[in-house]
Design a protein around this nucleic acid. Structure first.
Lengths: 394, 394
DNA sequence: CCTGAATCGTTCACGTTCGAACATGTTGCT
DNA sequence: AGCAACATGTTCGAACGTGAACGATTCAGG
């Protein structure tokens, strides 16, 4: 699924306006695009993309270059004499991945930066503290940044030391999708993060409302998100009075492809033994694989096994399409830039802000119409109540 | 229009208004619609849908595209011109006090509202859920408010019921200085609150840094702030490895003036017995009284007893002036209005935001130059390190 | 500076979608 | 009942979005 042309799987091709919007997203996420790459990705001809790019260029939203387009650059003389004032500040941004999850965060950040008239410099990094620090240092040394948005690795002593170092930087720092401990060594760090525990809770309650009374959880503890998902799952289970012992809770950290298949088999077996009819699966990538595995082994989804994924990157591609909790990635980037802009404008008098955002649940086929009929009669009242309460978040 | 409110009978075609509403629902659910698809789904001709779409586009609710419609897009240049910003909103604000703490919050809210071109209607209330609700209801009934900022009483079953009621209101609600539980019954409530636990921690660390090794805590549990202060005190004590047992921790809830004097005497006695040389006192009003009491009874402040107040309303009036943790009241109001303005502008697509703000410590005479000289030599290093770390927040 | 390869824009063709004009059915009012 | 106002459906020529072919242009590497 990497370089293969993956024409947008959903039925109808995109409208031109949507296509241009997505094109801008890609542009903001990666800084530049190629005509051929986008054409393949969107499943349309290159000519169409060229026309889009030209239109966007006429509106001054992109800079045309041979073979593709970039974000509007001051070097682009075709900039229609627009009174673009000089960038007030430059913000560095260091994220741990440029292919998964983060492009949308970057896209949101760039969109907000444009409104605030800021410049953003993005660098990818590995998922470890040492490289985080190296990338930040590079921005500090070679670019002239006035602020830093970063999603550092916070695990272990090295992570703590990195936090301490970030806290002591002479420029303002905003963490994205990370929470600094609200204590002294990191008290100057502002942050914006998704409340993944809430998201997991919404997913569990949705499954409960669909009639499931045994709800399992599969996560990958090598992701920084995982602990929060597990916490939210446990909290929701407690609130719904589902006992934790006897519930399926599995971790697939560090499994290869072969192991994974075995692991899925074991999970299905566990589910059978415990009567578990629904699973919350962290990382929708893994959810897609799990659904695939179920379908391949004759387990009906959602009939025998309902599934909600966590993260909504590729969930819609699966067959059946997977319900997924969608973190507000774009807003994470937006808010990070808002915090930074306000900090740069207002200085030290402004109190440290810390922002949590709620994700939303996107309901697709993999989680509706499960075992509801079995228990519908006796649970009608409770389900109706839950439905009303949940309404607003869907 | 058609005055009969005919509940939707299957088979009967929808009225145009209902149809447009459902069209918007489809749009919000899928991000885009096709004329042909919707026409088939609603069982009407494509032309009808086109007319609906055009009307909605004229109102700026959708973006017209060839073959269908999408959610309003900034790339849609037909929308940019009309842009009716003249529509200003009214926000109701209900706070539990109009003479203590809240005036500054209101002031900040008013300042931000002016910038955002909003109108604010403030009502005072008592510190109980029933009256909170009454005041909110009055705003809803007699003013025409588009949003609500409120600091409700959340204690007990009545408080929970109030939260549930607020959550179900048809207008957006932002809590000020209150945290709704991040769970389902209140999942639509946004809030902004000061991290009082952090503030208490800063105070404790400041006293530690001044050389104190036994630090007590005096609060008034009848205030909603108190539990957080106590929690922060305990956390900081744990982090600094000061044992909780043997530490002075007192509550002055519901004491009259005479009782209070006795209580202060008892506290001073406890401090003598336990070797406590510093106290964190919640509500600076009480801190002022306590300092007064100390001075009147020959206890030197800060020589024999260092004091940091929590809240910074009147702390500077005491003799000696009292160091105090100052919550960013003005910003609480500002952020509440910012959240509301953004919510009103962006609608339901915007994820729920929850914001925490850090207070700052204002150091005055009541907490400097205490017992430091006694232990300075051996603790120099540690104190210096803490000093550096604390610097930014002061 | 030259050359091959990639990229670009123009023109044409095809199918879909659009909207004006007119026709018809429905609702509400006098 | 009759009429007016409105909502909806049908028809048909025009407009639009897209893709293929082909010649013109630009780029990269000697």
């Amino acid at each position: 699924m990497t370089s293969e042309n993956t024409p947008e799987a959903s039925g109808r091709p995109l409208f031109s306006l949507q296509r241009r919007e997505r094109l801008m997203d890609e542009l903001r996420a990666h800084g530049s695009i190629t005509v051929s790459g986008i054409a393949a990705k969107f499943g349309v001809s290159e000519l169409t993309i060229r026309r889009d790019v030209n239109q966007l260029a006429d509106e001054g939203l992109v800079s045309r270059v041979h073979g593709g387009a970039t974000l509007p650059s001051p070097l682009d003389r075709s900039a229609s004499g627009s009174h673009q004032q000089a960038h007030t500040y430059s913000i560095g941004m260091v994220v741990p991945s440029l292919d998964y999850y983060w492009p949308q965060v970057i896209s949101g950040a760039r969109a907000e930066a444009e409104e605030q008239n800021l410049r953003i410099l993005v660098r990818g990094s590995a998922y470890d503290a040492a490289d985080n620090r190296k990338q930040v240092q590079a921005l500090l040394d070679h670019q002239n940044i006035d602020g830093l948005i970063v999603a550092p690795d916070m695990t272990g002593a090295e992570g703590q030391e990195l936090l301490r170092w970030l806290n002591a930087l002479p420029i303002p720092v905003v963490l994205a999708e990370r929470r600094s401990p609200g204590e002294i060594p990191a008290h100057r760090l502002e942050w914006v993060a998704t409340d993944h525990a809430f998201g997991a809770g919404v997913a569990v309650r949705h499954l409960w409302q669909e009639g499931h009374r045994k709800i399992g959880c599969l996560t990958d503890s090598s992701s920084p998100t995982s602990p929060h998902v597990v916490r939210g799952w446990k909290q929701a289970m407690a609130a719904l009075k589902i006992p934790l012992e006897g519930s399926v809770s599995e971790d697939s950290a560090g499994l290869g492809n072969g192991d994974r298949s075995e692991h899925f088999d074991r999970i299905l077996e566990l589910c059978r033994d415990t009567g578990t009819t629904a699973m919350l699966v962290h990382s929708d990538t893994q959810a897609v694989a799990f659904v695939q595995h179920c379908v391949d082994h004759g387990v009906d989804v959602p009939g025998s096994m309902s599934i909600v994924g966590y993260d909504d990157e590729v969930a819609y591609l699966a067959e059946p399409a997977i319900s997924a909790v969608r973190p507000p990635k774009r807003y994470v980037g937006r808010v990070a830039v808002q915090l930074m802009a306000a900090r740069l404008a207002e200085g030290r008098m402004r109190p440290v802000h810390r922002v949590e955002l709620n994700p939303e649940l996107v309901v697709r086929d993999s989680s509706v119409g499960g075992p509801r009929n079995v228990t519908a009669g006796s649970l009608q009242g409770s389900a109706a109540q839950d439905s009303q309460e949940l309404e607003g978040s869907l």
